[in-house]
Nucleic acid binder design. Structure first.
Lengths: 135, 135
DNA sequence: CCTACATCCTCAAGGAGCTTGAGAAGCAAG
DNA sequence: CTTGCTTCTCAAGCTCCTTGAGGATGTAGG
């Protein structure tokens, strides 16, 4: 029923060090200890870690996760709906990031093309990069 | 001809602190000083800063930028072609990142939808999130 | 029972790319 | 002269962990 940190790491996909870190910053609540001071994890802990891991995979920040986890432990919680709203908000962020990436790709493509054109034979004064240096 | 750091910041779009940081990590080479120890920037410095800034906007890492900047100062340099190759390599990275974002968005959309379905009236045991907690 | 070796513990620092702050000094304008 | 902006030098903080040192414990094999 109660596992060592290594086992918990296996079951959750978090590294041992990461689990300790999450505890340190207060994401896990109280974690039990054996007589000799080793951490012990039960199923609720595993579930919590898995949830955290999933939300991290979804690119939520630790503060957002902390808020959610806390919401889930308050009795009158509508945590589920909160999660949904956070997810929806997050989608907006992702879309704008993707737009940035698209712009980035276009710029880089241009850059590479102009380099190829101008610098076919090595360094050229026409090169956009070199221009950036001196302008 | 020679500007204060504040002016340089204005002209390059880097913050004052960032410019000092770039100097500290050796991206700028030698920066002049006035008699009382204030930094002075000439046009070549401005150009170099602008280039760095542009490459950062394009999401190049500082180490890559350092390599490029150094290449540009070596006499036999084909820096321009190097930049082009780096740009091309970078495009690949960007594409894979965008793919990740796409997957992320899909997951979040699913998540939000399942929340909406299951938790229309507040917390529900069916909710994927709540399941994550206890499973 | 003894010896490896794996796992655990607690600090502490590192990494990327800056930002922010403290505390002090200089410079220009009113 | 005073006010207020800019500059200076450290130094620490941010995010999210990872890596390492140094030491104690648990487990398996001989």
């Amino acid at each position: 029923m109660s596992m060592t940190i290594g086992l918990a790491a296996e079951k959750t996909g978090c590294s041992v060090a990461t689990i300790r870190y999450y505890e340190e910053i207060g994401l896990l609540g109280r974690i039990g200890r054996t007589a000799n001071g080793r951490r012990t994890y039960g199923w609720p802990d595993i579930g919590r870690l898995r949830l955290i891991r999933r939300l991290r995979d979804l690119d939520f920040g630790l503060e957002a996760i902390r808020a959610l986890v806390e919401a889930m432990h308050s009795p009158d919680s509508t945590a589920c709906l909160e999660v949904r709203d956070l997810a929806l908000g997050h989608i907006a962020i992702i879309r704008s990031r993707r737009a940035e990436l698209d712009a980035l790709e276009a710029s880089l493509t241009d850059l590479a093309a102009s380099c190829s054109d101008a610098c076919r034979n090595g360094r050229s004064p026409e090169c956009t990069i070199i221009q950036g240096m001196s302008a």
